[in-house]
Design a protein around this nucleic acid. Structure first.
Lengths: 282, 282
DNA sequence: TGCGGTGATACCGGCCGGGTATCACAGCCC
DNA sequence: GGGCTGTGATACCCGGCCGGTATCACCGCA
């Protein structure tokens, strides 16, 4: 009655994404008939209709939607398991730490220094990644721990240890009138056609509609601000990478940001545990 | 290089648990040679040695230990996915709530009443289970939400919403000298040969060594206390099921207990979301 | 030195996953 | 309306893999 095979899940996810058997089969590198059969078999085994094959198209049933979510998570976890197993075999005493490029530079440096001072400490490889990639990297096993930020990053499914809570600041061109102020509120930044707030991508890679330029990394952002084309709201530790053409002004009414060390909830790695222990003592 | 099949994982977990190919094969209902071959194949595909076949016995390598953890979690998740999918298809608007038998009776009742008053609320099936079973039931998909208690229950991997924080109390036989006191400290209870503190099982089902009787459900505990053979430390809401032969005395130095509503971190069920919303408003 | 017990190997058969060819059926355009 | 197109389902075949039996290689042990 149960025992979902990962091959079947892979097939189902592809069909559910394409909502089209032939295209899904092509993506999977197999022919369409075996794919149809595999899905039928899966439905028969579960005793549940997953897809509504109407003429003119395929649609997910409620159960199909549930399984799609579950299956995606499962396949991620399976890939993660494989990667973690391989890493356990080869890179014996080595951790991969994922962090947003440019964020929390000083904090990271302190943590790495403190950890390196511990006897028998694991070697740490720092991987810089874009917005929200840390969660994916933790989930799929490419990283062991990550720097993430509350309330920005989705932390569900991870264990976390708070490291640092800080105010947010507005990053402005040094020659802009607002740059002379000693503090600002969020309303000072919005609705300024001369200096729109830059827009970060959301979890799914799309952007909220709005006037500001769409950015996806800090160097891009830094350049835009230095050129006087945008402003940005970031946590105070971003000051460590400011250019001379930038000014950071505290925002009194923006929510505080807590940088946390995050790792997969079920991790039993003692190398991760040692790093967390070091982090707690900072 | 990757793509772990669940069949292989099932096989590997069994071998890793038995550390004996023939016994594992018997448990799996297959012959030993195909099992050996399947494990070899898994090792080849991962490019990693999982088992150390020494003369006189089989042992796990480091990588094998990692994969054992991962594989167990994966198989649980797979079973959960199947169950949740089936439940989504049949019991359309129905939630299973797991809770420790006897705990938080009043709170549970309030939540159920409030939820039932919501329009379009899902039907809720309450499942009473033993120590620590809630986590397993959430993980393997037999339950959608659970009442759990911090700091007693392991909450990693779940999202939670705090419901109620309360003091702990000592439950004593009414005729015991300590029962007359208006408050106690933990030290008052320990080291009393006449009234040992009852011992609950740990996560793995074993008991810490100690003088008190080993118990595994509340009715047993209630009887033992009423007979004057044991005392117990429980959260204040346990008062709702006390017998007349019991007395509850506040413990001033015991850590407070927070009862939380917990659900799988990646749940997207809107029925769960509705219940949580109701719970927050309590 | 045989004996018992381990996991690995050899080999074979049946099943199942995958392929090709084709069907049934809808929409569509002339 | 009659092809035409494109969908997923069906029929059928083949090869590989899963599982079985028989056996081996190797150790510990009496």
């Amino acid at each position: 009655m149960d025992t979902l095979e990962t091959r079947e899940l892979r097939y189902f996810v592809t069909v559910a994404e394409e909502l089209h058997f032939s295209r899904a089969a092509e993506r999977l590198g197999i022919a369409q008939p075996p794919l149809s059969r595999a899905i039928q078999q899966l439905e028969r085994r579960l005793g549940v209709a997953l897809l509504e094959r109407d003429r003119r198209g395929v649609a997910l049933t409620d159960a199909g939607r549930v399984l799609l979510d579950e299956a995606r998570a499962l396949l991620d976890s399976a890939a993660a398991a494989a990667r973690r197993t391989q890493r356990a075999a080869t890179g014996a005493n080595r951790l991969v730490l994922a962090t947003k490029a440019g964020a929390n530079h000083d904090l990271l440096r302190h943590l790495l220094d403190a950890h390196a001072a511990e006897p028998g400490a694991a070697e740490i490889e720092v991987v810089l990644c874009g917005m929200g990639d840390q969660a994916r990297m933790l989930r799929d096993g490419r990283a062991d721990v990550a720097f993430m930020q509350r309330p920005f990053d989705a932390l569900t499914g991870f264990d976390t240890e708070d490291l640092l809570t800080e105010q947010q600041v507005a990053i402005l061109p040094a020659d802009h009138p607002l740059a002379a102020r000693s503090s600002l509120i969020l309303a000072d930044l919005t609705g300024r056609p001369d200096l729109p707030v830059a827009r970060w991508p959301r979890q799914d890679g799309t952007y909220e509609p709005g006037p500001g330029p769409e950015i996806h990394d800090l160097s891009q952002l830094a350049q835009l601000i230095a050129l006087g084309h945008a402003s940005a709201v970031l946590c105070a530790s971003s000051r460590s990478w400011l250019w001379s053409a930038h000014v950071a002004v505290p925002l009194t009414d923006a929510p505080h940001v807590t940088t946390v060390l995050a790792w997969p909830a079920h991790s039993r790695s003692q190398a991760v545990a040692a790093l967390v222990k070091t982090a707690v003592q900072l």
